[in-house]
């Protein structure tokens, strides 16, 4: 559905994108992760036809956004990171305005606007002035706007930024609903935990270079991240807590099934390496290894692995 091939974009001396290649299939929800200035918004703007790439090609549904922008526009719905509002329009007029801009026939506009307002649960705000809506409502209105012309691909740039927890949850539900509707989504966000719940695949970009693109499981596998275990050792009173734990960490690191071990806040944090299939190793070997090393386990707590860890692992020093 979306194909980027060797896409590059430079602004004078600054290289915003470097040979980005990416394919997103139909119905996928692609999470786009990267630090500020990494090139996420630039990629989305190129796909939306707002920027022309320096080199490379970008296609949506097989149509080039560079040579056939007029054909691509009806296929995409682009929501920038900050909703642009006209101060003097109501919610209904705002949506009618863009319905008209998308050449939706006048006879169909009313029902279309009603439909999208219902979907985003803003029907009772129909006559409210757009600029007086809360940020969460404005974001929902933004989603309503991109759905007006029923595009196949939705490009949502930081849709959850600046929202309160309730608004975030509502927006996440809305995006999941869009996924169920069969839309192909490209969502960029800094809130990685939410992306993990929404997306079927993800891409990690840093300094304009695509470091990773694939499924969430593949990301964990590539980052060599399995489960994380918090271990607390039982020690004699007065003994060197730090020294004992550090020594144990050093010993555990020699095991190839362990990706990392460190001492922090009085506990030993052990990251298990991912298996070839992308899953984690069982925890028994770790218990056995600690006991074998003479350690006495006071607490053994498996923690769920987060997308943040994979992100940090994949971006750490990748470009140095």
């Amino acid at each position: 559905m979306i194909e980027l091939t060797n896409l590059s974009k430079s602004f004078g001396q600054h290289i915003a994108l470097q040979a980005v290649t990416l394919t997103i299939g139909e119905g996928e929800c692609f999470g786009f992760i990267g630090p500020n200035g990494a090139g996420k918004s630039t990629t989305m703007k190129i796909l939306a036809g707002l920027l022309t790439p320096t080199t490379g090609s970008a296609k949506v549904c097989g149509r080039s956004v560079i040579t056939e922008p007029d054909a691509v526009r009806p296929l995409i719905g682009y929501m920038p990171d900050f909703l642009g509002v006209y101060e003097d329009l109501t919610v209904d007029e705002y949506l009618q305005f863009f319905a008209s801009a998308f050449l939706i026939p006048r006879a169909k506009r009313r029902s279309t606007v009603d439909g999208v307002l219902q979907l985003v649960d803003l029907t009772d705000k129909r006559d409210a002035m757009v600029d007086s809506l809360s940020r969460g409502m404005q974001q929902r209105l933004g989603v309503a706007r991109v759905l007006l012309h029923d595009p196949k691909v939705l490009l949502l740039d930081e849709p959850a930024s600046g929202l309160d927890p309730r608004a975030r949850i509502e927006l996440r539900e809305l995006i999941l609903e869009l996924r169920r509707m069969g839309k192909t989504l490209m969502v960029s966000s800094h809130i990685l935990s939410e992306l993990a719940e929404m997306t079927t695949s993800l891409g990690i970009i840093e300094k304009g270079r695509m470091l990773f693109a694939g499924s969430v499981e593949e990301a964990f596998r590539k980052a060599n991240i399995g489960d994380r275990i918090e271990v607390k050792l039982e020690l004699e009173p007065g003994s060197d807590v730090r020294g004992h734990h550090m020594a144990m960490a050093e010993r555990l690191r020699r095991d190839e099934r362990i990706a990392g071990a460190e001492f922090a806040d009085g506990t030993l944090l052990v990251d298990l390496a991912a298996t070839a299939e992308g899953g984690g190793h069982s925890h028994h070997f770790l218990i056995a290894a600690i006991l074998e090393a003479g350690g006495r386990i006071a607490a053994f707590t498996p923690r769920s692995v987060k997308l943040e860890d994979a992100f940090l692992r994949l971006t750490k020093g990748a470009l140095n």
Partner: peptide
């Protein structure tokens, strides 16, 4: 007002 990108991604040229 950040509305120009919205206009430019519509069918209006």
């Amino acid at each position: 007002g950040r509305t120009l990108p919205l206009l430019l991604t519509s069918r209006l040229n």
